[in-house]
Amino acid sequence: MNDSNSDKKKTNETDETSAKEFAIEIVDLHKSFKSNRVLKGLNLVLAKGENLVVLGKSGTGKSVLIKCVVGLIEPEEGSLTVLGENVLELKDKKLNDLRKKVGFLFQSAALYDSMTVRENLKFPLRTDPSIEEDEKEALVKEALENVGLLDAIDKMPSELSGGMRKRVGLARTLILKPAVMLYDEPTNGLDPITSREISKLITDVREKYKTSSIIITHDIACAKITADRIVVLKDGVCLTEGTFEELQNSEIPEVRAYFE
């Protein structure tokens, strides 16, 4: 009896420690779309304060992975812990509360077309009655200043360039001061100079907001600037992982292909 109690205590302590150390912990994650098995038992951890880059060919399940993290896609099997909460067990309100702590920058930035930049940024704050209108305005301006786009506050999304849209999208996610950031191909479709600016912005965000981030990308230059650690996915599982330098010297052909 005493043994089982001490075992239980130990397990709880281990759980608490892992929850403290890891922002995200993914164990044996499976996801299929009809007959297409995308994730086949993926294991992954994101340490607190870490920038983790996920590389992989199209269709290896990178975007599916981060959509599972925020509960947009429900996996069939596995466990998914975000900031100490098991995402798969959370229901409506609790899931929404967790989502407010997780920022998500979409590939297309996903700005609301019918709203100005100001309204786009205020939108995530609308459900919080404790924030006064003046305070909201100040938060919007602060977030836009952080991405260098204060001048665009009254513009419509259709008036912005691709890079500006990404920045506004980033500002919109930062306004909720998330603990975890998920970037879905942040430099996709941008020129090398703007890509570099966005990559630097991602590292700045980490410094300023103390976020832990997963960055999905095909862009090796972006990975070099942003990554503390890189994970390479192949066929729905983790092929290898390491720092940028370690992977640069990797003997695995699929990994070498990224650096050639």
Binding site: K67, V70, L72, D92, N96, D97, R99, K100, V102, F104, F106, Q107, S108, A110, L111, Y112, D113, F123, P124, R126, T127, R172, T173, L176
Partner: peptide
């Protein structure tokens, strides 16, 4: 439909709005 394909609906969902 346009909001769905440009992920605007997903963006609302991930920012905790129904």
């Amino acid at each position: 439909a346009s909001m769905r394909v440009t992920e605007q609906i997903d963006a609302m969902e991930v920012s905790g709005i129904n």
